[in-house]
Design a protein around this nucleic acid. Sequence first.
DNA 1: CTGAAAGCGCTAACAG
DNA 2: CTGTTAGCGCTTTCAG
Lengths: 337, 337
Amino acid sequence: MVDIARDLGVSVMTVSKALRNHNDISHETRERVQKTARELGYQPNWVARGLATRHTYLVGLVVPDLMHSFFAEVLKGVAQALEPAGYQAVILNSEESAEIEEYQVSALLARKVDGLIIASAQRSGRARLFRVLRDRKVPFVLIDRLPAGIRANYVGGKDEEIGELATGHLVEQGCQRIAHLCGPAIPTGIGRLSGYRRKLADCGLAAPPEYVVEGQSSDGTGFEAMRELLRLRPLPDGVFCYNDPVAAGAIKAVLEAGLSVPNDIAIVGAGNVHYSDLLRVSLSTIDQNSFLIGQTAAHLLRECMEAKGPTRPTRTFIPHHLIVRESSLRIAKACST
Amino acid sequence: MVDIARDLGVSVMTVSKALRNHNDISHETRERVQKTARELGYQPNWVARGLATRHTYLVGLVVPDLMHSFFAEVLKGVAQALEPAGYQAVILNSEESAEIEEYQVSALLARKVDGLIIASAQRSGRARLFRVLRDRKVPFVLIDRLPAGIRANYVGGKDEEIGELATGHLVEQGCQRIAHLCGPAIPTGIGRLSGYRRKLADCGLAAPPEYVVEGQSSDGTGFEAMRELLRLRPLPDGVFCYNDPVAAGAIKAVLEAGLSVPNDIAIVGAGNVHYSDLLRVSLSTIDQNSFLIGQTAAHLLRECMEAKGPTRPTRTFIPHHLIVRESSLRIAKACST
DNA sequence: CTGAAAGCGCTAACAG
DNA sequence: CTGTTAGCGCTTTCAG
């Protein structure tokens, strides 16, 4: 910048303003400045600018697992909504650990990110992290998992309804003994579990405790959990799985046991990950519109970051919908035979 | 920092040094400083530090597609290797566009990242971007795709060998008419294609041009490309697919056509993405050790960033290996029946 | 419309 | 071992 100023015989300040299209610079000067800047291959130093303006154009993004395509998709939505505004994302993986998450958030704060998007691994009831963020007045949006009792921006689905919808679908398909491979004790897992229970109660069906087995959320674990279910008598004839990766493992376990999906056991997942259509048996699932979740969260965050004062927390629920594929299609099957 | 200094009646410099465990500070002073820092909830401002030291502890990571689990896994390796050293990653998605990639790299440079890891979308022969990086002396490591004729750090697989291995496996399984759903004209795609051609030549098998169809690299495209192959006569009896997502689509297309995988058409992919075991027909594939690619690249980058002077470019080839699953298992099948 | 002064929060280099 | 001086590269503020 000093160079440009010297070359043109103007002050550094003029250059600074001209480059930012500040409007109290004559059109002519601005052109000249921008021209020499280009010739000299000048690039503004965002670190210095960030220090001066307290505005880094950096957004922190903390997710429990990047390998899970649900989050990969969310992330894509976030990136797409952030990029045109000049923001970039620092993405960190909390490995589903509340502790790592806290550490990472604090590192992001030291980095002076302008805002945060978090799919939190905090167990229910732990609000400290979010209090810290509120006190420090860093805009943040929680996604996918809304810790109970937290007043904060949130974008995600209604997990209880997701659980009800999936379970209800199994009921409609004629299942009588519906099990659930539940997720960990995070809001998403808890919500879906209680949706499952409520729907069964509504339909007057039993929900024996041994029909609920924890399946975690990564790819292998659904397989193990399903094998546990397969040892039970009577066998369940329908299984609602916490998410698609779990469901994928579950399908594998059922088939390996020599049973048919969906005729012996119908299966529904949640998340509609991109490969769910390509599995052994294509997977019925609840689409959560993950891309839109990311986009919406990013837009909300931008509003907060660009607002003058503090903003009031907003909760946005992204609609979900059922996608029926082979893994739950019993009636049609029955008809066609 | 000023506060801490005032509280303790020492200079700001002492505080600065004490907090960084600089070794010319008395043990006692250091303790006192760190204690009050903790009490005051002090957090160093990395932006300011970055400006002063010209060292941001930020690494830029540019990949063509985050949704592709191959890159998600690479990324995990990178993050895992970078984190203990205090680096964080700014991750950008180039959407497989050379132009977007250049823009993103330049934004990262403005941000003064300490180094870059790039799975480049540059078409072969375009070296400008890398020249710029070299001239500006920013350490960078290319991964997965080595543009021809570039002298730069590289970590990835040997694509020609991958192509040969996969094709050779199909030959061993007794396939006579082997087709290839090739990738885009990037090094990975080109290398695998030429490995395929070479192996066929070595085995004295024909490689008719219509047996090579472009399948891109995302999930849907393998399906379409395979349908094209299915219109040919004679039908191929083995298909080597550019990568697993393409292969997944291909399997779907073959099954929908009423044919059997692997008996009518055997299929091999590449990448060993985490769900390849869960597909309609579990997928034989070449494992590329994606996690290790990420880790290795990150370690190499760290060495470059922490070296005093310029370092000489290194190429590290991560070994791959064949994983045989159902989609190519013809001989065993033949035996067992 | 242009520029001079002061400072963002921290640290390198050197002097005490 | 501790402190002083002088920036890092840019911007805000306010006076010309």
